[in-house]
Design a protein around this nucleic acid. Structure first.
Lengths: 146, 146
DNA sequence: CCCGCTTGCTTGACACACTGAAATATTCAG
DNA sequence: CTGAATATTTCAGTGTGTCAAGCAAGCGGG
């Protein structure tokens, strides 16, 4: 599959790597900015986004966010203080606490998603076919890369 | 060009947006991990990467990193303490301090870049033509989106 | 010349994200 | 029932980031 492994990447590859870097940077700025408009930090926005889909135990949140559970405690604390998230006991296991978005939390998450769709949509400039091919290329990248 | 503006994005667009999100997440993990292997934080690695190309005044660094100058002070302080960066006076203007990578700093930056090329190369699985078309699509995205 | 404005950098106080270790509560296997 | 494993929290410590204030150096007009 790979035409090269440890060998020097060619100019084209370097350029693509660079472009990906730019896209990543742009995406991040937009994300943080959208979060800030709702008085949230990036971490809080990501966590709230997860909880807007379904309640999750703290442990699962930590896994999804790829950080230590002790870190999640603080983020949930702050969102809870703002009334966007609440902690509920898990009826099946009294050790676990389920974090769940409140109605207001889901509302904020929805607003955030929409702000992001706008922000993320430099895609709008691409035709249907181009989007199709971009989708396939990105899928391939994600598959190959581990 | 754009088939829609404020209207609901179609399923394909949503999927692409999602894929971009995944690529961004993956890229970030790899970046942080590569930095950590050199005992650097992401911010330190980014700053060192900039300085490995050319010395820059603190002010310019803040602009490139999109943060406050007062923040740059701390990051440069830590890199300077590790001997990877040094502050020099600007002969043209005694107010400005030029941050420059030391030899060791450039060496670390080089190692980091290579680690990143590896990490960033889920691209290796794509053919030359595919990379070409990916490059064009990414360029279009970046152009359109501002 | 020198006064006042601007510019570049640093400092200090503060919030948040994050980690790692220790404490607590609960589950679960033997 | 006892001891190991699991879920969460607390605490101390580091780094990133902001904002306001301070200091030094450039710069323009009287």
């Amino acid at each position: 599959m790979a035409a090269q492994r440890k060998t020097r990447p060619d100019a084209l590859t370097l350029e693509v790597v660079d472009l990906v870097g730019s896209v990543v940077a742009r995406y991040h700025e937009d994300y943080e900015e959208a979060a800030a408009r709702h008085s949230l930090t990036g971490a809080q926005a990501r966590l709230l986004g997860l909880l807007s889909l379904e309640p999750l135990p703290m442990r699962r949140l930590a896994q999804k966010l790829k950080c230590e559970p002790s870190n999640v405690t603080g983020i949930v604390d702050r969102l809870e203080a703002r009334g966007l998230v609440e902690r509920r006991p898990d009826p099946a296991d009294r050790r676990v606490k389920l974090a769940a978005a409140t109605d207001e939390g889901r509302e904020v998450a929805r607003g955030l998603r929409e702000a992001l769709h706008f922000a993320r949509e430099p895609l709008a400039g691409l035709s249907h076919e181009e989007r199709l091919s971009l989708r396939d290329l990105l899928r391939r990248m994600l598959d190959e890369g581990a």
